[in-house]
Design a protein around this nucleic acid. Structure first.
Lengths: 387, 387
DNA sequence: TTGTATGCGTTATCAC
DNA sequence: GTGATAACGCATACAA
């Protein structure tokens, strides 16, 4: 309500002196500083950030643009980002694109209009039109979670290819030979890197990952709030015999939908089908963790990307086109086990007759084996690789 | 980069004409409009929202201030808020207070500085210093999730007292007599309303809820990322004999921590102890929903609060001090069952000897009974009550 | 140590 | 229908 000149009048000084007291710039005598502070207190004066930002050309605001902030993976990234930037006096704006290019562009335009100091972006497409818009307006940008084709932009992500390789290698080691894959959109690098890793693991074992075993869908629920993993798993079960004995879901939401579909179809995990996936839920949320996963270091991804963006904002380091690749962690749980040929055969005939009897469904809660994947497979450093 | 006068020069008109074209205000001939639009396109001009906001005194931005946006309850509220405001051309800023008064005040000051048009607030304390700060700066505010003592502020929340009453009534109906309660901070109205509801249900059955059966803690993880429900459940188990046969957790995070503590202590749910709670996880995230809960209509809470705030912002309706109370939904699942005196007695002697044998642990997946609680217990309308 | 003039980019107001 | 001028609230550059 009251302005800097109101304070100035009341303190009997100029507006400039008030400004100096507020910002701690220049020198002011203890006496006038006290008078100014008293006036500020009396008027309940709060500076207008808009005017300040317009003048100084810095908003002390950055934006985090992701597919869906309610995905725990992105939520954890967000905490890493927020912790870093709040500690440095910045505010963070969150934007959900639902993987939609049009929404993404609209948000980026809005952010440019609002003069944010920088953007952390999970791009809906790898082609990179989106961050070119930012760059043309001299807005620093760091890409998160995905590869992009441009050579001018820094990015931070997890090693998807290696994580997928480890998960599928684990399945193959258990004896699985027919492994299906449920992944995201082919236009997202993360989707495809996980396909590549899975395929590499299979080929190393003399097996194949034919396109007919790969189902493409969406990583998130989108506006329909529908789990695409459910549909993909149904498609998989409706496919040609023999049924796969294991399925690799390329992210958490896909896995949830798939598991629900399997249950509805009367199939048991892992007896009738093993399930492995990328991404973990926060351990506090799950009383009996069940799913074998490659866990991404989401908090660190957010924190590292934030730190990198800050370097670009302050100008202490220009973008070099580097990719920071952080290692995953393989977490083995009960959803993956050796294939059971008897049950698999039985189910084929009993498919319309509901759940199959036989072995125990849920093993009693057991200690969870955690194998640390260590550095990325082509890693060089102790806890990360710079590619 | 380029400004409105750059565009004006290029189009051979005044800045004012460009402004008119941009905003669609006043009259401009089709010819000059075309020239202006061409210049905008050629320069890649994007208006500066800061200058615009400084001039117009409206930022088209509102803030949602909650304890922790990674709590699915608040995340769902946030979607309701965002859907409403984005549809009306507003941006939403998210702020996490971790229930900390100091952080809350800091955020509110920041929001006032940034001249947000309104604030949706989950206050850390019911006393209401926080929104008095907003009101003194003429910033519209609507309180979410909690009662406040002030008569001048509108609020939207779920009927905590009735929800707690229903859950405990359900436990009593199953035969439970010793029911413990794990709740949040006593300074949060939601914590206490749920205690009151539980107590009323017990007293209606001629039972009591003594203070010794109530454990107070934190609704969220806070910075330590520790589940307080775990500690409270441990305290409960370390309490005097006989042990309670059921426990009511006042929110989802408390329930997760408590269930983990019970499992670590070798107790089975519901065989050794029934568990009921407030709040549900999104159904997509849980393959076999297990917990009996009172589900709050989080999306609607967010949406209604947003709509109310918008009325205050546009001035179409002044705050009247009303409380919008939305009904909960009782969802009965496998975590609550009749008490089992045999097992309870056995466990007392076997406490140091690890898990107790006997009955089956996890019943096989069964259809879930959903009882709709209908309108709030003192409700008047078809789907809500205005108190 | 303090004050004055000026401009950040936009829009309201008035004049033409 | 279009343009000149002032002002939003603050901070930079320079002067005293």
């Amino acid at each position: 309500m009251s302005t800097i000149s109101d304070v100035a009048k009341r303190a009997g000084v100029s507006a400039m002196t008030v400004s100096r007291v507020l910002n701690g710039t220049g020198h002011t005598s203890a006496h006038t500083r006290a008078r100014v502070e008293a006036a500020i207190e009396e008027l309940g004066y709060v500076p207008n950030a808009l005017a300040r930002q317009l003048r100084s050309k810095r908003t002390k605001t950055i934006a985090l643009v992701v597919a869906d902030i309610s995905n725990p993976y992105f939520t954890t990234i967000a905490r890493g980002v927020e912790d870093f930037f709040v500690a440095h006096g910045y505010s963070v704006m969150y934007c959900n694109t639902d993987e939609d290019e049009a929404e993404e562009e609209q948000y980026l335009l809005m952010l440019i209009e609002r003069q944010v100091d920088g953007v952390l972006l999970v791009p809906a497409r790898s082609s990179g039109e989106s961050f070119r818009l930012l760059q043309s307006h001299r807005t620093p940008v760091v890409v998160i979670d995905r590869r992009v084709t441009s050579r001018n932009v820094d990015s931070v992500r997890c090693d998807s290819e290696a994580g997928a390789h480890s998960l599928v290698e684990h399945l193959v080691g258990l004896g699985h030979r027919r492994i299906a894959m449920l992944t995201g959109s082919p236009s997202i690098s993360t989707s495809m890197d996980r396909v590549l890793g899975a395929r590499r693991a299979l080929e190393e074992a003399g097996l194949e990952l034919p396109e007919s075993m790969i189902h493409y869908g969406s990583f998130n629920y989108g506006k329909s709030n529908q789990a695409d993993g459910h549909r993909m798993a149904m498609d998989m079960l409706a496919g040609p015999e023999p049924r796969p004995t294991a399925v690799f879901c390329a992210n958490n939401f896909i896995a949830f939908g798939a598991i629900k579909a399997l249950r509805e179809s009367g199939l048991r995990v892992p007896d009738d089908m093993s399930v492995v996936a990328f991404d973990d839920l926060p351990e506090e949320w799950v009383s009996e963790p069940f799913l074998t996963v490659a866990r991404q270091p989401a908090y660190e991804i957010g924190h590292r990307a934030a730190s990198l963006l800050m370097d670009h904002i302050t100008g202490s380091q220009a973008p070099t086109g580097q990719s920071v690749i952080l290692p995953f962690e393989l977490v083995l749980r009960r959803s993956s086990a050796a294939p059971n040929p008897d049950v698999a055969a039985a189910v084929v005939t009993a498919r319309a007759a509901g759940p199959v009897g036989g072995r125990a469904t849920l093993p009693s809660p057991a200690p969870v084996a955690i194998a640390n994947a260590g550095p990325a497979h082509r890693g060089s450093g102790p806890d990360e690789a710079i590619a």
